[in-house]
Amino acid sequence: MLAYIGRRALLAVFTVWAISVLAFVIIQLPPGDYVTSYIAQMAASGSVVSEEEADNLRIQYGLGRPIYVQYYKWVKLFAEGNFGMSMEWKRPVTEVIGDRLWLTMVVAVSALLLTWVLALPIGIYSAVRQYSLGDYAATFVGFIGLAVPNFLLALVLLYLGFTLFNANTGGLFSVELQDAPWSMAKAWDLLKHLPIPALILGLAGTAQQVRIMRANLLDELRKPYVVTARSKGLTEGRVILKYPVRLALNPFASTIGYTLPYIVSGSIIVSLVLGLPTVGPLLLRALIAQDMFLAGTIVLLLGVMTVIGTLVSDILLVWIDPRIRLEDS
């Protein structure tokens, strides 16, 4: 079990490394180095960067030296929590991002939780009552969920909310609490706004999980041990929940790791449509304005958070599934 977790952790480290390289590439791609464009940006807005300051920045980021040195310097500064300056906002990147990163993760994780909470009972129901009206309904909604890209779903929902109820369904906070400091009232407000984005983000994942759960459970339900359990006089609920569901849960749980990156990905676009204060809209603006430090930092931070989330779900999987736990011992 320790070997398994160790392996996953090692892979996570590699993944973070790969993401950092990609983020560095994104920072490097626009023509010209960033100190030069930083100076140009500052000059455009009327402030002057002294020669000395510019030289300091150049040394700090190893500009003019080989690319791997530049990468190393950037990663080192990053690890120290110095993400550089945002050119567009003229403030440290850390300040610009602020709460947004946490809100992104809150939205993503609640979508993930919603996926499980919905998929598990619906999947079980669909398998146990195969070909029933409910099964067909779940199938139909599932297809819609898989076929409609989530940003379109957000758009349609926003449109319906706007035309039918004349209400703005977007956002994560009520207007009056938007800039307020954190308090119980604000947290409660966030909780009230979460279900809609979580549902939009989670629908595709839910549809997929229902499919997996249903197929697995149908396979298990046909096996003789189910008949045996039933003939022994166990109640129907116990027959199903105690044995086949537990077995069917396993392939279901192993896909969790891939659901989180998918949801985080989707949240970027959905946030734009729904106007959520996550890193999504910030990333888009940064990319369009070629504010590369900000963009690179967001990409890397999102990647790191996702990898951590995936690692946590892997460890949970070990806890659920004794087979993995016993594999190495």
């Binding site: 892979l11 996570a12 590699f14 993944t15 790969a18 993401i19 990609l22 983020a23 994104i26 791609l29 626009p30 023509p31 790791g257 891939y258 990156p261 998918y262 985080v264 990905s265 989707g266 970027i268 676009i269 990333l283 888009l284 990319l287 369009i288 070629q290 963009a295 690179g296 967001i298 990409v299 999102l302 990647g303 996702t306 990898v307 995936t310």
Partner: peptide, 24 residues
């Protein structure tokens, strides 16, 4: 296989956005 696992655990849309925005 490890490369595939790494690619699958990266949120892709932010990466696409970054790469696409860098096109001249």
């Amino acid at each position: 296989q490890r490369i595939i696992e790494i690619l699958r655990s990266i949120p892709t849309i932010p990466l696409w956005m970054g790469l696409a925005a860098a096109l001249p």
